[in-house]
């Protein structure tokens, strides 16, 4: 299977293990990722706060490139996915966007990696390639805000209770716990501007994951991952409660399940240790 690929800025930086695991997993699943030539930033959260036209045009520039290629576009970052979907709706509605050609066919789908793996690669192909079952892992799937909401943008069928990551993890044998914080907000970039607010939201999510009986949290969003993984030491220090819950990108656990040897390298990039848990359940 061949698809266009929009990695987004953080996958070569703060979310490097996400980028590495997405590429490794796709190779194993015989998915050819064709990175969009000369892709640029989607505008993320800063453009829409500043200037509506800038926000749409920055994302639309990338869709214009994808449109020329014509293959489905796979996006691992939740924020990029969201901004690209906003621009797609505008382009499909025939809106004129300054600097963007008005010949937009839109004959391709934009898919977040979770939905792509579950709906397009599919359970059959996954199960065929799985080497290790994730049986010992109790986990919760954390989707965050931007692949779910609002459904008029994301086309999510169940924006308050998405399922694809749960199905995917269950198909790998993991013990997926149900919880009501799947699409709760981690505070996003408030971690830089008002860390006190973000930390309160992060702590609540970690508490709810523990209450659900999870040993770890799985996500498909670089911002969520970074906030949950990086801040645990500080939250422990501030609250006196000890937090030590490994956070995984879904592609990391999929990689472990597929027997990908480079998984060791990804796991070393975590702030909250993830190898001890995997060793305990016999996965490394």
């Amino acid at each position: 299977m061949k698809v266009s690929y929009y990695p987004g800025c953080s996958l070569s930086g703060t979310a490097r293990e996400y980028g590495e695991s997405v590429e490794a997993v796709c190779r194993r699943l015989e998915v050819e990722l064709h990175e969009l030539t000369n892709w640029s930033c989607c505008g993320s959260s800063s453009a829409h706060v500043t200037n509506d036209m800038l926000a749409v045009a920055l994302a639309a520039r990338n869709l214009e490139i994808a449109d020329r290629v014509g293959m489905d576009l796979v996006v691992p970052c939740a924020a990029c996915y969201h901004r690209l979907k906003v621009a797609e709706k505008e382009l499909l509605a025939g809106k004129q966007i300054e600097g963007i050609s008005d010949i937009y066919k839109g004959d391709f789908r934009i898919k977040h990696i979770v939905d792509f793996l579950w709906e397009d690669v599919g359970e059959g192909a996954l199960k065929e390639k799985v080497k290790k079952q994730l049986g010992g892992l109790n986990l919760v799937c954390y989707y965050g805000c931007l692949t779910a909401r609002p459904p008029k943008v994301t086309d999510a069928k169940r924006p308050e209770d998405p399922q694809a990551m749960d199905y995917l993890m269950k198909s790998l044998g993991a013990n997926v716990k149900s919880w009501s914080y799947k699409t709760a907000c981690c505070g996003g970039n408030l971690i830089l501007t008002r860390p006190d607010i973000a930390i309160r939201l992060i702590q609540k999510i970690l508490d709810m994951a523990l209450e659900a009986g999870a040993d770890c949290v799985v996500t498909g969003c670089p911002m969520c991952y970074s906030n949950l993984d990086r801040m645990q030491k500080q939250i422990s220090k501030e609250t006196g409660e000890k937090y030590n819950i490994p956070i995984f990108y879904l592609t990391e656990l999929l990689g472990v399940s597929l027997g990908e040897p480079s998984a060791k390298r990804w796991l070393r990039r975590h702030f909250t240790d993830a190898t001890l848990l995997l060793r305990r359940v016999g996965l490394t």
Partner: peptide
């Protein structure tokens, strides 16, 4: 942890991105 890319290199089509910024600012 290898999460910092030290030297940012501009993309080849940087002029297109800058043009988007210019036009968006002009239109307010």
């Amino acid at each position: 942890r290898g999460k910092i890319k030290l030297i940012p290199t501009p993309i080849r089509a940087i002029s297109q991105v800058r043009a988007i910024f210019r036009k968006a600012e002009e239109r307010g």
